[in-house]
Amino acid sequence: MIVADKKPIEEIVEEIKDHERILILGCNECVTVCEAGGKKEVEILASALRMYFLNQGREKNIEELTLERQCDSEYVEEIRGVSDQYDALVSLACGVGVQFTAEHYPGLPIYPGVNTCFLGATEHRGLWTERCQACGQCILARTGGICPVSRCAKRIMNGPCGGSSNGKCEINPDLACAWQLIVDRLDSLGRLEEYETLSPVKDWSADRAGGPRKVEREDVQS
């Protein structure tokens, strides 16, 4: 899923301070799972903002709503009927949802309420870690199912570098060395000899380097 983290409330206050009628818009997908932008976080943020502005002696109309998704027109259109009641919208969806909602409501200022961080997994409640950078050309078949692009600080294809120590990365003692994980996994699969195959120069054109990307599937288009 897409993992996001809450923005500090001070930053959101700064974004919306000149608006009076504000909708806090959550998303029921990834940001709900990572507890950054679901219904619960919408409630908490809305209450905190109301409290903040009341304390300032400035009562604002702050309302709450959480959509099923903000990355699908079908759901984003659900606020069509009420959008003109607001002069600003704070979206707690990922960067995709923020932008997609903005595209649907050109006259409505929209502000992000979370920082979109990475594609990751829930290790346990309260801990999410990165697994994928969407490089567009998956190499996991060659690396024992562990991704050096997202999990090695130097994203090196033929690791580990000299900074691997006791299974940890030199940049942070809490961070596992991706190449230690790869070597261990190849070993447990009985495929350690594959380590010696040189990984060729990567085609980064399917990555961010190639410009904004799209997936187009004529077979499923109606």
Binding site: P160, C161, G162, S164, Q180, V183
Partner: peptide, 8 residues
Amino acid sequence: PFADPYEI
């Protein structure tokens, strides 16, 4: 020669 993992 001293970095980990030694086996590789």
